[in-house]
Design a protein around this nucleic acid. Sequence first.
RNA 1: GCGAAAUUGGUGAAGUGGUUAACACGGUGGAUUGUGGUUCCAUUAUGCAAGGGUUCGAUUCCCUUAUUUCGCCCCA
Length: 423
Amino acid sequence: MIQKAKGTYDVFGEYGKRLLYVEELIEGLMEKYNYEYFRTPIFESSNLFHRGVGETTDIVTKETYDFKDRGDRDLTLRPEGTASIVRSFIENKMYGNHTIPVKAWYYGPMFRYERPQSGRFREFYQFGVEVFGSEDPLADAEVISIPVNLYKLLGLKGIKVNINTLGDSESREMYRNALIKYFEPYINDLCEDCKERFNKNPLRILDCKVDANLDIMKNAPKTIDYLNETSKKHFEMVKKYLDSMHIEYSVNTNLVRGLDYYTHTVFEVEASVEGFGSQNVLCGGGRYDNLVETLDGPKTSGVGFAMGIERLMTALDYENVSMPLINGIDCYIIPMSENEKEYCAHLCMELRLNGFITDIDYNNRNIKNNFKMADRLNSKFVIIIGEEEKNTNIITIKNNETKEEYKINSEELINFLDESIGE
RNA sequence: GCGAAAUUGGUGAAGUGGUUAACACGGUGGAUUGUGGUUCCAUUAUGCAAGGGUUCGAUUCCCUUAUUUCGCCCCA
């Protein structure tokens, strides 16, 4: 038997309904925020991700799906959304004629070659947002408000917003150097992973789980102390806007993010749900004022986030969040025999085109099993068509809740259903 | 890239180195030939992830591979 590729999954059934509900909610929310829908290719030139995400990041060094096409081009299945949206912004010259800021949203599959586990897949879906061309802290705050409001709309309770700032490039560089200088004498006290981090990305030492309780961690330099005036002011304003939007958050000075391109604000929203597992960060993002330039565009600031849909769905399950899903159909049509099937097929189509959720027996079941089927489908009405009905056009329809049976002329059927189901 | 545990029918699962792989749900047919959801009867895996090995004999033991689940790293 052919099995699905590692780290992928199929969607169907109840999960499919819930997923569609969440997707529609996202779409509606982005409409209210007046963001523009973007869809970029699933694969892009490998270069885009190498330069965009960062040559030294884990995502690029060991997690991309790279391949060559028949024209010997180097291509990569997108591991994240931001680089592609930035490419599209530049390539379509949106910095010129378009209204600035450009506020983009996207939703689709991403691919990373990782070891699957709780809340982590090789093909996974992200919903994300990018705002180009505004350095205003209001943009940062608005971007943070999107996931928070989505979770609110869904009814998800156990969430926690963590924010921090890395400052602009200058501040960030100063801070990085300070950290290296600080940790150097203690390098041997750190765990193996942190020794590795010291060389690759010293900022990440700060959110190590193993060493978290060491004194050297607690006394490590804080980003806040290395901010220049502009950066400090920017962060203060972000917090003020969040307050005015009634978005709750906590400042976590150890929050740094793995992607190279962040400057100023970074944030994460985590699910603080009991038993959720270790992959509990539902979404993450921040400001990237140099990325557009890095990818050969004109200097343009940006801010955005990305959210993993699978983790959101898991969190919703953990909290037993209910959704107003349609469960059940309006009509189930039973042909008594093969002779009535064409008549039934026509009737079925009529009902569907008039807006009724309708299904029909495809398997020539006997009447008993057809009634069972109607129950399983949770049908409001059952329509039985035999020779008599076919010849007279008087249709037998049974209300499956009250068990009342009616004989109705086929021309009045739509009216009858409208009145019965309408309210 | 590293570590741990799993994999038996449509589903949930029990089970054992030896001849017919429990039980339950579901499916199908019938008792009831145009009205069900109750009950009763029958039927429903030449098969225990795939391949190889040990053995007189393996679903049960060993190896390899695949997938799943859970950690680490990293990330959404």
